[in-house]
Amino acid sequence: MTEQTQLDLAETAAPDGGGAGASKAMAFSFGEAESVLDRRELSQYFEIWHNGRWFEPPLPMDKLCQAFNMAPHHSSAIWLKVNLLVGAHVPTAKLSSDDFERWALDFLQMGNGYLEDIPNRGGGTARLDHASARHMRAPKDPNEGYFFIGSGVAQEHQFAPGRIFHLQQPDVAQEIYGLPAWLAALQSGLLNENATLFRRRYYLNGAHMGFILYVSEAFSDQETADQIEKAIKAGKGAGNFKNMFLNIPSGKKDSVQLLPVGELAAKDEFSGIKNISRDDMLAAHRVPPILLGIVPQNAAGFGKPSEALDTFYLVEVVPIIRRLLRVNDWAGSEVLQFANYDASDGSQITPTGKRIAAASED
């Protein structure tokens, strides 16, 4: 949760009177901003522990789900890879296009992808269904089946042993669960989100950082000051910047001064933060900026999109395809198939990364 800062109300008797009805100096503040995601839970690694039946993931799966939409360049990069995979995927009788897409999305975002083997009457594989990575848990005993853990109390289901295929992006610290390859850019993605939220709150707050409402004249009674305080609190917008009402009876013009360090204007470096965090996410995903619709800032541009796509497919998508094809070894049959990719020069790239030269026109 976001840490809240409190300012104690200061009440002192007016210098020209100490009666019960005399006005008192008062100050209060409000409008503390809150973040959408708890960054501390996402940035800390925890030891892999178990409850006697299954292991808990090293990072909260619910938080990784929320992080999918933390920044447009993150979700767009994930979807670009998924779209290229879906475009090359050849549906089979045992693995539908819908189940494959969900499985691929889980693998790229969560670092783990699960498929459930649905048996036929003869004990073979009838089809493979997607199992959500958010709810799957690895058993403590490797001879037992995986668990599906629901969000409610006592909502759990244990699969039969050998019915779940678990594909993971390897982690250097443990081998029970995978971790997504983009995890190094998590803080950059959250910074990008926070910069956008800051700008939105700044805009909704009337393009200012908050204000001090200073009244130097004494009110006729304390009830009037309380009513003004109540009106200002009730009129503030949700999530706006902190404002302050300050009443000092018989105060001088310079009784309260704001001494800023640097400029008083809001210097949040919005564009710089957005650009730097964007570059971090693109580096983590290894996606050429031209494939995400980013406008070049120089006259030279990013080159031809077709050439960038060919290189990206060969060095990034093909290795993902080869990892996904491991399900065929587990299933004992070719349940997953991919078509060749047509490159811009007329050649083709096979799912294993081999180039087939374009046919001669002679």
Rank of each mutant, 00 (worst) to 15 (best):
L7W: 15
D8K: 08
A10M: 12
A10C: 07
T12N: 04
A14V: 09
P15K: 06
G18W: 09
S23L: 10
K24G: 00
F28N: 10
F30S: 08
G31I: 03
A33N: 11
V36G: 00
V36S: 04
L37N: 00
E41S: 02
L42N: 02
S43P: 00
I48F: 06
N51E: 02
G52K: 00
P58S: 14
L59S: 00
L64G: 01
A67W: 01
H74P: 00
W79A: 07
L80F: 07
K81V: 14
V82H: 03
V90G: 02
P91Q: 03
P91F: 12
P91T: 04
T92W: 11
A93N: 12
A93T: 15
K94C: 10
D99C: 06
F100A: 02
W103L: 00
A104D: 02
N112D: 15
P119K: 09
N120S: 12
R121P: 02
R121W: 10
D129N: 15
A133Y: 07
R137D: 06
R137E: 07
A138H: 09
P139Q: 12
P139Y: 11
D141Q: 07
D141S: 12
G145Q: 12
I149L: 08
G150Q: 02
G152Q: 06
A154T: 07
E156V: 10
E156H: 12
H157S: 03
Q158W: 13
Q158L: 10
F159D: 11
A160M: 15
L167F: 05
A173G: 08
E175T: 11
W182L: 00
A185H: 01
S188R: 01
L190W: 04
N192R: 12
E193S: 12
N194E: 15
T196H: 14
L197Q: 12
R200Q: 15
R201G: 09
Y203F: 13
G206W: 08
M209P: 06
F211K: 11
A218I: 04
A218N: 08
S220Q: 13
A225D: 01
K230W: 08
K230T: 14
K230S: 11
A231G: 05
I232E: 03
K236Y: 05
A238N: 04
K242E: 13
M244S: 04
P249T: 05
S250Y: 11
K252Y: 05
S255N: 12
V256N: 04
Q257P: 01
Q257M: 14
L258E: 09
E263W: 04
E263N: 14
L264C: 06
A266F: 15
A266S: 13
K267E: 07
F270Y: 15
F270C: 06
G272A: 08
I273G: 00
I273D: 01
N275Y: 07
I276P: 01
R278G: 07
D279I: 00
L282H: 02
V287E: 04
V287S: 04
L292T: 09
G293V: 10
G293D: 11
I294M: 13
A299P: 00
P305D: 07
S306T: 13
S306F: 03
L309C: 03
L309D: 01
L309V: 05
T311G: 05
P319T: 13
I321M: 14
R322K: 10
R323W: 08
R326Y: 04
W330A: 10
A331D: 05
N340I: 08
A343Q: 09
S344F: 09
S344L: 08
S344I: 11
D345T: 09
S347K: 05
S347N: 11
Q348W: 01
T350C: 14
P351D: 08
P351R: 05
R355D: 03
A358I: 11
